[in-house]
């Protein structure tokens, strides 16, 4: 019976009307950048000025065009084998985005299912599933990925599957928590008391109400997976050459850090720009979808 209850604007609805979805400048930047990256990945063969894997030993370690001795032939310079950096960056986005997005799709599918089941039915099922989550959380993830990838080999598909099968724990934990608190809400009890089947209640009333947090985590998780993919490639356990990955470019560039700084700096900048865009989008979604943050 608080006075604030009926103050307009102080108790915002969970359902956000379309007109309030206006973008913040950061989110607009994020969406624009993400669109550019996606187009880059899709249109790589059209956009890349050179073949990303063909060495050109006459043009090795050419600096970017704005640096002294740079050339307009290679806008971002070339690496130690004379391969065009811009072309390699464009192709590298394909791996980063595939691993990021497909990994999240798989991980969220597993994690959301686990979280819904564990939270809604509790009991022994919950104990077993959360036991699995705790086991996966106890092993530092890079170590686990490295070991698993070393054992099973390194291809794009395998990488996505491995990431999906390990990375679902965040989704499971958050969804389970949300389900537990939703179950306390009376509309779930109301659905039971009209004789609704529990599975229908779960899919119709619980799932839509956890979608908000899921979307936010998924967005931020894409960023985390892109960094993870880069780390694994950097350590030599990513998708193997000749496929181009940003992480591998960084690892190669590191050896020339004293003489050709751009080889390490530019791929890292690309990764940071992409993850930053995703974080901006994720934060904006959080502000929009989480009623606690809207005021």
């Amino acid at each position: 019976m608080a006075d604030t209850e009926t103050l307009p604007g102080l108790s915002p609805p969970l359902v956000v009307p379309a007109r309030r979805l206006h973008l913040s400048p950061l989110a607009a930047f994020g969406l624009a950048m993400l669109t550019i990256f996606v187009l880059m990945a899709v249109l790589a063969p059209l956009l890349a000025p050179y073949d990303p894997t063909t060495p050109n030993l006459r043009a090795r370690l050419v600096p970017p065009m704005w640096v002294a001795k740079g050339s307009a032939d290679h806008i971002l310079g070339t690496d130690h084998l004379g391969r065009d950096m811009l072309s390699r960056l464009i192709y590298g986005s394909r791996i980063a985005l595939s691993v990021g997005f497909l990994g999240v799709v798989l991980a969220s599918f597993i994690g959301v299912s686990v979280g819904l089941i564990a939270g809604f039915w509790r009991g022994p099922v919950d104990s077993i599933l959360m036991g699995a989550v705790n086991i996966l959380l106890a092993i530092p993830n890079t170590l686990l990925y490295l070991t698993v990838l070393a054992v099973f080999g390194q291809s794009l598909l395998l990488m996505i599957i491995v990431i999906g099968c390990i990375n679902w724990t965040t989704f499971a934990r958050v969804v389970r928590g949300e389900v537990l608190s939703l179950k306390e809400r009376e509309f779930i009890e109301a659905s039971r008391s009209i004789g609704q089947h529990p599975v229908v209640t779960l899919l119709r009333h619980v799932l839509p109400n956890v979608l908000g947090p899921i979307i936010v985590i998924a967005t931020l998780n894409v960023a985390a997976l892109i960094i993870l993919e880069a780390s694994l490639s950097f350590l030599g356990f990513g998708v193997q050459p000749p496929t181009v990955t940003w992480g591998r470019m960084l690892a190669d560039g590191r050896n020339y850090i004293a003489t050709a700084w751009w080889l390490a700096a530019i791929p890292g900048l690309m990764i940071t720009t992409l993850t930053l865009s995703l974080i901006f989008i994720g934060d904006w979604l959080r502000d929009r979808l989480d009623p606690r943050n809207a005021s």
């Binding site: 969970l14 809400r185 009376e186 509309f187 109301a190 008391s193 009209i194």
Partner: peptide, 16 residues
């Protein structure tokens, strides 16, 4: 047997 609950803000699914 049907139920009516105390909190009218919690007893309706906000997304339905």
């Amino acid at each position: 047997v049907q139920m009516i609950f105390q909190d009218p803000f919690a007893s309706l699914d906000p997304r339905t």
